[in-house]
Design a protein around this nucleic acid. Structure first.
Lengths: 362, 362
DNA sequence: CCAAGGCATGAATCGTTGG
DNA sequence: ACCAACGATTCATGCCTTG
């Protein structure tokens, strides 16, 4: 494949992304966003508790023989990306714990300079159905400049403005892509197993590029990067192998008239008063496992357990459940019912919660 | 240093953590929590395994040299840790984007099996003063078992109870360590630059160990791991080079009184409840042969046979087999699937099992 | 037309025990 | 080591059906 002299804008190029990048002129791209295969290494099938089968990402493009093969792949495409990236351009790569550590090392070894790792916290992740691990509720993005001294672009003021005038943090709370945004094929089946939400790309592109910039995505899929780039007045280049994805992406991008929906940039409304699990008082040392709690008169009592539940004679449960049980009542607000002894006084545990709330607010 | 036959508990061992770990008996530790140094650019803490010092440098070649040294260091201590870790033990390592990707790759390359990456979201991170990046508001922990097939320990029910009866997610919001918890030396200066909050260790130790387990921290510092281990009824081993840190940690841990009733420290899991054959319900008269069972909606039905099996139209078998068959599913938990009619209500047979269990316990 | 409830589904490295 | 059987396990969201 011969090298082009000018860069083809606002198009999807079909083929292997490494070969395609090698055909593009060097130092011609301002921003790269990449969502490479995660090398998931899934075992057998997984079923939900209601016996339905989880639709796993088992596509051929996610299969690698070994970590070594995956590292060689990462090294190859990140090297090709480095050649076409302008000296002051930046690159984002997204992944999960299956692959992101290997991608991070490859980035560092190739001389990229890490600026941030940014956590995409999902409001609605898939639960852990078997109860064997923590709910995998986030993905990680790495943001790099081409070198330590590069004068990269970061729209600090814009990010701050969109975040209620406080600095944008490295953890972003955004929903996964579903509902109307999720693209379906003619049979009504999801067109791509891992379509990213536009809200994520809005922040990425807003933060690290300017209108008129060239934004390249080497694993274009159904074209979220291109769609958002167009909406934000940037030029895009999409690289993709699969004909089916390209068709969907072209239709999607064609239908966009370049308007910006700024609501996608903002953080979902902050919860009013943050919910404080009772266990928080334990891990913060405000209470200890074994502490005796009583009602305000000292008629009923229970002991605090390490997992943030209470135990009373032969009953265990939340502060609310145990509070109701000892009174033989239907319901009980454990926060106002239970007190701890402090010297000769009884202090309501709700005061401890207030203390935590004020610390969380600061 | 010669190898010990028994493991020294609830002590801080002074010296190089790799040498000290090599002196401990193999497969003797249940849980490792490690907060390794990652000041690549500061020089002070980073030595090659042969004890030569790595120069702090900026340019690319030396940066690569320093990554290589860091990888050798990680490989050495994680290998030593692997030897002393029990086959069903787990390890946590915490870091930031400067080092965590390299640590992650080393873990994977040594054969550790990643279970989760967990994000510690800081309520009160240091702001980014220059406004050139996103506020670095989190650190990353990697949690691994020793191998893919290991039967590691995860206290799912405890973590769920702790989190208001919703699965604990992979992102944890916790404040950094300051205020009264932050240890100061005699001059009133913070005793350690990166003291971790006890709340973080509380969750780690609660989630992945049992009372009486051995918890080792190879970079003990001021001993947060030991302090929380003691509070939660676990044994600790701390490894540390610096005399100043050891003094502070010993004083800290000595002041903790660690007697807590073990029953308050553990959350019973249904998984480890004694097995009750379905036939027991019959011989105890809780069910009679011929009783009709249905699913919760009354869509499927079966009859109880005297031998403790069920029969449905033209199929006979265990409660599980028949439950699966009528639904045309691969598997089924008959205990939660089948219900008996009691007046106008349907009662799950799992409640009958609970009744038997409580009778057997008393 | 609206409210309530049912149902589908998302990048997932998701068993244990006894024969 | 392999196999069969037991039996434990889900949260947020959006669309659709039912009343």
């Amino acid at each position: 494949m011969k090298t082009l002299n000018t860069i083809p804008l606002n198009q999807i190029l079909q083929g292997d992304c490494i070969e395609l990048m090698n055909s593009l002129p060097e130092k011609s791209v301002d921003l790269i966003f990449a969502d490479p295969p995660y090398n998931l290494q899934l075992g057998g099938d997984l079923h939900r508790p209601n016996n339905t089968k989880v639709d796993a990402c088992d596509d051929h493009w996610d299969q690698f023989d070994s970590f070594k093969a995956y590292d060689e792949f990462s090294n190859a495409w990140l090297k090709a990306a480095r050649r076409i990236l302008k000296d002051d351009g930046t690159i984002w790569v997204i992944g999960s714990y299956h692959n992101i550590f290997r991608v991070g090392v490859t980035l560092q070894d190739l001389g990229y300079w890490m600026l941030n790792d940014v956590i995409w916290r999902k409001t609605n992740p898939m639960p852990n159905f078997r109860g064997r691990r923590f709910t995998n509720a986030h993905e990680t993005m790495i943001w790099c400049s081409k070198s330590e001294k590069a004068k990269y672009n970061f729209n600090y003021e814009a990010m701050k403005a969109f975040n209620d005038d406080v600095q944008m943090r490295s953890d972003w709370l955004l929903p996964i892509c579903n509902g109307g945004e999720r693209l379906k094929n003619d049979e009504g089946v999801k067109a791509h197993p891992t379509q990213k939400p536009e809200s994520l790309l809005y922040r990425v592109i807003m933060a690290s590029s300017k209108p008129g910039d060239v934004v390249l995505d080497p694993f274009f899929g159904t074209g979220t990067t291109g769609a958002v780039a167009k909406k934000l007045g940037r030029n895009f280049i999409g690289l993709e192998r699969e004909t089916d994805y390209i068709k969907v992406a072209e239709k999607r991008i064609k239908s966009i008239k370049g308007e910006v929906d700024t609501s996608l940039l903002t953080t979902p409304a902050k919860r009013q008063a943050p919910r404080i699990p009772f266990g928080t008082l334990l891990e913060r040392g405000l209470l200890e496992p074994g502490t005796k709690l009583t009602d305000v008169k000292g008629r009923y009592e229970a002991k605090v357990r390490a997992d943030g539940t209470l135990s009373a004679s032969d009953f265990r449960g939340s502060i609310h459940q145990v509070g109701a049980k000892v009174q033989n009542a239907q319901a009980c607000n454990g926060w106002t019912f239970w007190h701890m002894e402090k010297g000769s006084e009884r202090v309501c545990i709700d005061e401890l919660r207030e203390q935590v709330r004020s610390e969380l607010a600061s």
